[in-house]
Amino acid sequence: MSYIHGYDPETLREVVDPAECRERLAEIGPQRSLPALLERVWLLKVLGELDEALSISEQAVRVARMAGTRKDLLRARVLHATVQQFRGAYAAAEYELSTCIEEAEGQEWAGIAAFALQHRGKTRFDAGDFEGARQDFKRVLFLRQEMGAPEQQLEATMSAIEAAERRRPRSAVAS
């Protein structure tokens, strides 16, 4: 079940039903498996409970490092970076996402690279770097088209490109 009901066109943040998210948090409870930890982090993040989300995201990275695959670790690190983004630590989030992108591209894991690029674009968007965000979103669109991603994912990425283009300074639009 997807808890995402769309994306806010102004902030690019996920639109969720808080009651559904809280109900799912209660179902997960104190489970400590990596998938449960990652889901808890995401739910807490979208609910705005950022201190707890940060703590659990750090735990998820440790669990992934000890017991997961390299892909698991990258996913946990991307999620950790998104919590940093929501907390306003844009430089730290962008750095972590950039290293995740480099590793995913080096391993030719296009899906993870696109996932990390999408979040780096959102981080840049939040930080006011609309040109950087636009470039990231365009790379995401290319990767997702190459992978044959679902139409819904492609549309969300195109909407993000449009949002970044609307906010770019006029001088950047002319170039």
Rank of each mutant, 00 (worst) to 15 (best):
M1Y: 10
S2V: 09
Y3R: 12
Y3S: 02
I4K: 09
H5P: 00
G6A: 07
G6P: 10
Y7K: 13
E10T: 05
E10A: 12
T11A: 06
T11L: 11
T11W: 10
R13S: 06
E14D: 12
E14P: 03
D17C: 09
D17P: 02
P18R: 12
P18E: 13
A19R: 15
E20A: 15
E23A: 15
E23I: 06
R24H: 15
L25V: 06
I28N: 05
G29R: 09
G29Q: 06
R32N: 08
R32E: 14
S33W: 07
L34V: 07
L34T: 04
A36I: 05
L38Q: 13
R40K: 14
L43T: 04
L44E: 14
L47W: 07
G48H: 09
E49M: 05
E49G: 00
E52W: 01
S55N: 05
I56H: 00
S57Y: 07
Q59W: 06
Q59F: 04
V61N: 09
R62G: 02
V63H: 10
A64S: 10
R65Y: 07
M66I: 07
G68L: 04
T69K: 03
R70E: 15
K71R: 14
L73W: 09
R75Y: 02
R77L: 14
R77P: 03
H80S: 10
H80W: 12
A81E: 05
T82Y: 00
V83Q: 01
Q84D: 06
A89N: 12
Y90K: 04
Y90G: 03
E94W: 00
E94D: 14
S98Y: 00
S98F: 01
T99C: 05
T99N: 11
C100K: 01
A104Y: 01
E105H: 01
Q107G: 00
E108M: 04
A113E: 02
A113L: 01
A114P: 03
F115R: 09
A116L: 02
A116C: 03
Q118C: 05
H119V: 00
R120G: 08
R120D: 09
K122G: 07
R124S: 07
R124P: 07
D126C: 11
G128I: 10
F130W: 14
F130G: 05
E131D: 10
A133V: 03
R134A: 15
Q135F: 09
D136N: 15
R139I: 01
R139H: 12
V140Y: 05
V140K: 10
F142V: 13
F142S: 10
R144S: 02
M147V: 02
M147R: 14
A149M: 08
A149Q: 07
P150L: 05
E151W: 02
L154Y: 03
L154H: 06
L154I: 13
L154N: 08
T157H: 08
S159L: 13
E162Q: 14
R166H: 11
R170F: 03
R170T: 12
R170G: 02
S171D: 12
S171H: 14
S171F: 06
V173R: 14
A174Q: 11
S175Q: 14
